[in-house]
């Protein structure tokens, strides 16, 4: 599974890994949404540190989780976006509505 999810207090963290494209995004989306529904986190953290490839499907994936978490009153943050994916992120303009940061 290209995503591992852990929940602590009001924070749910999804550790994404491997290649994110239209094909792999479907399973990642379903796994995260199932847990959002169950946990209704105040904060959803999407951790991209183990991601090795990402195209525009990653933008849709983040946007969709942001919206879904918001319906349960939670906000979304994106951690450790790898350098190679920053170009796609800049094009998306997602940084205007979601906080991006590095932990390491």
């Amino acid at each position: 599974m290209p995503v591992r999810i852990s929940t602590e207090a009001n924070t749910m963290t999804a550790f994404l890994s491997g290649e994110i494209d239209h094909h792999s995004a479907a399973a990642i989306r379903d796994a995260i949404d199932t847990q959002i529904q169950i946990n209704r986190p105040k904060l959803l953290k999407l951790d991209f540190s183990e991601v090795t490839f990402m195209d525009s499907s990653g933008v849709g994936l983040i946007m969709g989780r942001y919206k879904n978490a918001l319906t349960f009153g939670g906000r979304t943050e994106v951690a450790n976006m790898p350098a190679f994916a920053e170009k796609v992120m800049r094009l998306s303009g997602l940084e205007k509505i979601i906080r991006f940061y590095k932990e390491k």
């Binding site: 933008v59 796609v88 094009l91």
Partner: peptide, 15 residues
Amino acid sequence: GGERSGLGFSVMESF
């Protein structure tokens, strides 16, 4: 609809 962001051609262009 769904989760397409409409960025595909922009990505191809800038990459």
